[in-house]
Amino acid sequence: MTPELERLLGAMATARQRDGVILTAYTDFVRSCGLDHFVLGMAIGDPDVGQTVEIQTSLPDAWMEEYDALDHVRHDYVVQQMANLGPDRPLLTTAWGEATADRPEVSARTGQVLRGVADAGLGNALSFTGRGAAESDQAWFAATFGCQRSGREAVLERINNHRNELLIASFALFPCLRPALERRHAGIVEDLTSREVDVLARFAQGLRPDRIAHRMGISKRTVDMHSVNARRKLKARTLAEATAKAVRYDLI
């Protein structure tokens, strides 16, 4: 195990995804493999009804703003590969690059996305796509690695030299990304305040409202107010449900 991978796995074990520590360690790990960029994508939900997609990447913010504004996700070449996954085919490996846009089976809009991501830094890349282990688990994952100027063969050689480590690191990272994705998929978009997080964390410890008020140095009425606001934001009917959702979505 390389020192960079060891640091990454250590960060996964001790930090929260929203703190940014994990993605910083992941970026360092990818760069240590001689690769310029990565894209981590995760989708959850029924493709025929509506999916929610989360993307973490080292590519420039300007490209991701364009990607979101033009709804490129529906025409993303890697996302399209997810349709080929199934219980009997849980993992796929796909090499692609700017030249893929010229293939006759690739639509003009998908070609536009391929050329755009090449300009952003992924001229040649390799993607690993997979899905949840359970047949009923409607979750799909994709980890893409590549370089801006290196040729196709050089990029593939670098990735294959570190293939096992890249797979271990990427698929270990997806559980860290999933809580935020599930939260968005459930339609929970309003952030909790630090006080609301503190109150729910103490409820999760089994403390009563009066004890929480004493610990936090506030009135019980204020504790009740934070509880009501947290329940509303988390779309929970009870405080117990709000606390359970806060744990599930990695908020406390």
Rank of each mutant, 00 (worst) to 15 (best):
L5H: 04
L5K: 07
G10N: 15
A11M: 05
T14H: 09
R16M: 15
R16N: 15
R16L: 12
I22S: 08
L23C: 10
A25E: 14
V30M: 13
R31V: 15
L35Y: 05
H37E: 14
G45K: 09
D46H: 05
D46E: 11
G50I: 06
I55Q: 10
P60R: 03
D61A: 15
A69Y: 02
V79T: 10
Q80K: 11
P90T: 00
P90R: 07
W96Q: 01
E98C: 01
A99P: 03
D102G: 02
R103V: 14
V106N: 09
A108Y: 03
T110W: 01
V113A: 09
L114Y: 00
R115T: 05
G116H: 03
D119F: 07
G121P: 05
A125F: 01
R131C: 02
E135L: 10
S136P: 07
A142T: 06
F145Q: 10
Q148A: 11
S150V: 12
S150G: 09
E153N: 07
V155W: 06
E157Y: 12
H162M: 07
E165W: 03
A172I: 09
L173E: 09
L181Q: 11
E182R: 15
L192A: 07
L207Y: 06
S219E: 15
T222V: 12
D224Y: 12
L234S: 01
A236H: 06
R248H: 14
